[in-house]
Amino acid sequence: MKPPALSDLNAFVLVARHRSFQRAANELGVSRSALSHAMRSLESQLNARLLHRTTRSVSLTQHGAALLQRLQPLLNELDDVLDATRLGAQTLSGTLRINANEGGARWLLQHVVEGFLHTHPHVTLDLVTEGRLVDIVAEGFDAGVRLAEAVPQDMIAVPFGGPIRFIAIASPGYLSQAGTPQTPQDLHQHRCICQRLPGGKRYRWEFMDHHKPLLVDVPGNLCLDNSALMVEAAVKSLGIAFVPEPYARQAIAQGDAVWVLESWCPPIEGLCLYYSSHRQIPATLQAFITALREAG
């Protein structure tokens, strides 16, 4: 038997969504009678009644509800495939504005930006870095980049880069003089390089104690707001710093810093690119997401 036409399946989804033949017909640009005929033809091909019709309302039958539940994701996936094909075939232009924290911007520059701009040379990428978490919609950004835990719940998030750790580090010289902390509570007996958050508060270091969060308000007479500077300060034996692991890798590899309290620093969800779920996604952003996913 000949399978149903894709146009009829799309029409069924619109009728089911609007619960109205007239509104669905208006969206499709066809007459109500033509749409009703298409639905009867679809029911005949599937040998199942999909819609309850009255003069005032339209509702789904049990078969119609089951079809809609399985059909909608397939049609959405098909739309994504077609959009990706269109993106590959057209020349994109315009400005793509992304607000990111410093670590996210560094990762994008290392893994995504060069290839994206090479593929789409007519796109201008405006990558703004700042510590504060902004309202990307209100401030005119197409997307934002933050740790997963900081992404607002009403946003669509695209994870990238894998899990990340925040780690405590100190120089060998500092540890030989002050000793090595064995638990996070031991930090109260040490000099710590504190972090000042964008809102002005000092960041409380976050550890895990048998899968339970443990927050420590560490002491210290030096406060910084930049992870790279915090690593430099730790290397200079000014105290213990708590930074994202990528910032400390080189110093650890060169022997300039030592990772302490390692068992208390498990990986957490890493970075996400996020954007509004209430706005149509721009073609430039869709292309950037594709490049981001290809980069891992």
Rank of each mutant, 00 (worst) to 15 (best):
R32G: 10
S33L: 14
S33N: 12
A34R: 05
A34I: 09
A34C: 07
S36A: 15
H37Q: 15
S41W: 14
S41E: 15
L42D: 02
L42N: 00
L42M: 01
L42S: 01
E43I: 05
S44P: 07
L46F: 07
N47C: 14
N47D: 15
N47T: 14
A48W: 10
R49T: 14
L50Q: 02
L50R: 02
L50P: 02
H52P: 09
H52R: 06
H52T: 13
H52I: 12
R53P: 05
T54S: 06
T55P: 08
R56P: 09
R56N: 11
R56K: 11
R56L: 13
R56E: 14
R56D: 15
R56M: 13
S57R: 04
V58D: 00
V58E: 03
S59G: 03
L60N: 00
T61S: 02
Q62A: 14
Q62S: 12
Q62R: 12
H63Y: 12
G64Y: 02
G64W: 04
A65C: 05
A65R: 01
A65T: 03
L67P: 01
L67S: 00
L67W: 00
L68H: 04
L68R: 03
Q69T: 10
Q69E: 15
Q69H: 13
Q69A: 14
Q69R: 09
R70Y: 10
L71D: 01
Q72T: 10
Q72Y: 09
P73L: 03
P73F: 07
L74G: 03
L74T: 08
N76E: 15
E77P: 04
E77G: 05
E77K: 00
L78E: 09
L78T: 08
D79Q: 07
D79F: 10
D79E: 07
D80R: 08
D80M: 10
D80I: 11
D80T: 07
V81H: 05
V81G: 00
V81D: 03
L82A: 04
L82D: 01
L82R: 06
A84T: 12
T85F: 13
T85R: 11
R86S: 07
L87D: 02
G88S: 03
A89F: 11
A89K: 06
Q90K: 06
Q90P: 09
Q90N: 08
L92V: 02
L92Q: 01
S93V: 11
G94W: 06
G94Q: 01
T95L: 06
T95W: 08
L96M: 04
